[in-house]
Design a protein around this nucleic acid. Sequence first.
DNA 1: TAGATTGTTAATCGATTAACAATC
DNA 2: TAGATTGTTAATCGATTAACAATC
Lengths: 217, 217
Amino acid sequence: MIAAMTYPISVPSLRRLPLYLRLLEAWRAEGRTQVSCTHLADALGFDPTQVRKDMAAAGASGRPKVGYDLHNLRDVLAGFLGWDNPGEAFLVGAGALGQALLAYEGFAARGMSIVAVFDHDPRPGAMVGGKPVLPLAKLANLTARMHVRLGVLAVPAEHATATGRLMAEAGLQGIWNFAPVRLELGDQVVVEHVDLAQSLAVLSHRLSSLPQPTETT
Amino acid sequence: MIAAMTYPISVPSLRRLPLYLRLLEAWRAEGRTQVSCTHLADALGFDPTQVRKDMAAAGASGRPKVGYDLHNLRDVLAGFLGWDNPGEAFLVGAGALGQALLAYEGFAARGMSIVAVFDHDPRPGAMVGGKPVLPLAKLANLTARMHVRLGVLAVPAEHATATGRLMAEAGLQGIWNFAPVRLELGDQVVVEHVDLAQSLAVLSHRLSSLPQPTETT
DNA sequence: TAGATTGTTAATCGATTAACAATC
DNA sequence: TAGATTGTTAATCGATTAACAATC
């Protein structure tokens, strides 16, 4: 069987897919069964052609005049992202951020399921979010045994480089990196970096170029 | 006095500024005093010309052959982002995510300082991160009284639209939105959206297009 | 001075948007 | 059928990268 094999998808397209997915699932809950690119574009403030290209890139196809079948489209997008059977992931770092991610995943990060939590030198019996916190020394062993591919790195900046390397050596193939540190782990490991400061910079700058509230005196 | 008034900065440039800033501060701690675009580019994996353009867009200037004065460059970038005297911000939503952001800001979000926490109907006396949790009913009053401009929206998705509107009506001019919901608040309010699912989509897709670990049985 | 680095203009690349043919 | 929508090719726009002159 040959998959549709359209053009390779771009990062901007990829980043839009979860937005479509969320909308489709909301509409599905309302009982809709058909959807057009114009509907999606209007709801998200995008150009309809862009939506159509994104769908094509993800391997979805619709029918002229009719649009896309909502259920099918949702399944194609979710499947394209590998989000239909979420991969298991290890969380490394049991601090405030790690705990938030553990709680957050329920509504935002459908693409993975955190199955264990690790930290440097945890107190015996320590738990976060109902899961035991394991020492990092067990990471390699469990990665191999459980065939886990994805790790979430949520340790303080000063430990991030060493911990990232440890995760790569343990056999994790993808690292979702929340530490403000660039990881250099070669081509074998996929690293996706989340840096809140980058987002805040955009907001700060826009806010500072807004008309300041008149505060004479 | 006329500010340098170079070209308006692009969003991609803006998002790179915090990366430079972080690096400059690390190098400053090591005692360096000069820096060239090539140094910065090498450390971050960027093109040197791109770095030079970013510096120009932020209003920094260097000297041929010499490079940039490290301290000055840091100050110019921080000033451009308005990060030298961090604005005060209100956090709305005292759940796991809100608490993480409260803890996170120390090392990542230098551009703001959370001065109060609000939630829908908090228990009297409730505290998070050492700060009392105030009812949303007090938001408008305190926004006006304290001249706060920035709000962090970290409530569950189902409350995000209404809470966002409330924040805008309370007079907040910028909203850093962590809920997976598009806010429609007109031109008076600057909204910056953080959506972890978008980041995870990139990682999921890259991971799934990696050679799968051979698992023939 | 010679050489390294900035600053800027030109070329390239890629993503978005527009135009339009194909189709149900 | 007529009209709406997909799918695709072409045009535009903007960001990145290359080339090079200015400068200390």
